[in-house]
C-alpha cells in the first residue's frame, strides 16, 4: 500500500507542472538569455565568432553618467511608491472598512476606472493638463496669475504624477485585501484599553497591514522603475531612466549586449532593494518570518 502511494504521481505536482513550465519558459529563460548576452560580444545564434567579454559592464562602471541614470530611475521608483502608498492607504482602509455594499462598489469602480483606459491614453491626458499649452498653464495665464507657463512637464515631478495615477490602483487593491482581513475587534480592544483611535491604528492596524504595504510597495516600485511610456512622454526625453536607455541601445545603437548588461543591473538593483526593504519591514514589524 505504502509503495503504491510512493510511486503514484503526485496530482498536485502534475497540476502545477504547466504553470511551472510556463514560468520557466517565459521568466527564467529570457532572464538567463539576457545574462548570457550581457557577457558576449554578439549574438551567437546569428554571428559566427562570438567571445566572452566584460566590456559592457566596464563601460557602465567607467562612466558616471550611467550611475546617474540608475539613481534617477531608483529615485523616481521610490518617490512614486511613497506617494502611491500615502494616497492608496487611506483609500484602501476606507474600502476595507466601509459598511455599505453600494459604497464599496462605488469606491471599487472609482479605483478600477482608470485601469480600463490604456497607459498611453492616460499619459496623453496628463500631457494635455501639464504641457505649456495645457489646461493648467492656460487657465493660470488667462486668470493673470502667471505670465510664463509653469514647468510642469519634462520634470521628475511630472513623471511621478503620471506614474502615481497609473499605479495607485495596484497599491489600493493589494492593501484592501490585507486590511479587510484584520479583525476590527483588535482595534476596538485597544480603544477599550484606553488607546486613542490614532494610537490604535498606529499600534494595531498599521503593523498588521505591513504585509500588504510590502506587497503593494514592491509591486508599484517594480512597475515604476520599469516604466517606459510615461517617463518618455512626461519627461520629454530630458529625464533619462534605465528603460529608456535600454530601448535606445536596442532600437538605435543596435547594441544588444550593452542593453542586456543594463537590464541585468536594473534587475540586480531591484532584487537588492527588495531584500533590503523586506528585511527593514520585518524588523520594524517584528515579524521576522516576512524575510
Amino acid at each position: 500500500m505504502s509503495s503504491t502511494a510512493t510511486t503514484r504521481p503526485n496530482g498536485l505536482a502534475l497540476f502545477i507542472l504547466p504553470s511551472a513550465l510556463l514560468f520557466a519558459l517565459f521568466f527564467f529563460l529570457p532572464i538567463g538569455l539576457m545574462a548570457v548576452m550581457s557577457v558576449l560580444t554578439g549574438n551567437p545564434v546569428v554571428m559566427p565568432k562570438v567571445a566572452f567579454t566584460t566590456r559592457h559592464y566596464a563601460r557602465m562602471i567607467g562612466d558616471p553618467f550611467y550611475f546617474e541614470v540608475i539613481w534617477t530611475t531608483i529615485r523616481i521608483g521610490l518617490v512614486t511608491t511613497l506617494v502611491a502608498l500615502l494616497i492608496g492607504y487611506p483609500l484602501a482602509h476606507w474600502m476595507a472598512r466601509i459598511k455599505s455594499r453600494s459604497g464599496h462598489a462605488l469606491l471599487l469602480m472609482a479605483v478600477l476606472a482608470p485601469m480600463l483606459t490604456g497607459i498611453v491614453v492616460r499619459t496623453f491626458a496628463w500631457m494635455t493638463l501639464l504641457s505649456d499649452k495645457g489646461v493648467i498653464n492656460e487657465t493660470l495665464i488667462s486668470l493673470g496669475l502667471i505670465s510664463q507657463p509653469l514647468k510642469l512637464m519634462y520634470t521628475e515631478t511630472g513623471i511621478v504624477v503620471g506614474l502615481v495615477h497609473i499605479y495607485v490602483p495596484f497599491m489600493v487593491l493589494t492593501l484592501t485585501g490585507v486590511i479587510g482581513r484584520i479583525d476590527e475587534r483588535l482595534e476596538q480592544a485597544a480603544e477599550n484599553l484606553g488607546a486613542s483611535p490614532l494610537r490604535a491604528f498606529i499600534e494595531v492596524t498599521l503593523p498588521l497591514s505591513l504585509p500588504g504595504i510590502l506587497a503593494g510597495s514592491l509591486l508599484v516600485f517594480a512597475l515604476a522603475i520599469s516604466a517606459y511610456v510615461t517617463p518618455i512622454l512626461l519627461g520629454g526625453f530630458q529625464i533619462m531612466t534605465l528603460p529608456i536607455l535600454i530601448y535606445q541601445q536596442i532600437s538605435a545603437n543596435f547594441n544588444v549586449g550593452f542593453a542586456a548588461a543594463l537590464g541585468i543591473i536594473l534587475l540586480m538593483i531591484s532584487l537588492l532593494l527588495v531584500i533590503a526593504y523586506n528585511r527593514a519591514l520585518g524588523l520594524v514589524s517584528g515579524q521576522r518570518e516576512l524575510q
Partner: peptide, 15 residues
C-alpha cells in the same frame, strides 16, 4: 562615433 556622441548629447539635454 555614435556611442560617444549619444553619451554626450544625453548629458547635454538632461533636465
Amino acid at each position: 562615433r555614435k556611442d560617444e556622441i549619444d553619451q554626450r548629447v544625453n548629458r547635454i539635454f538632461r533636465a
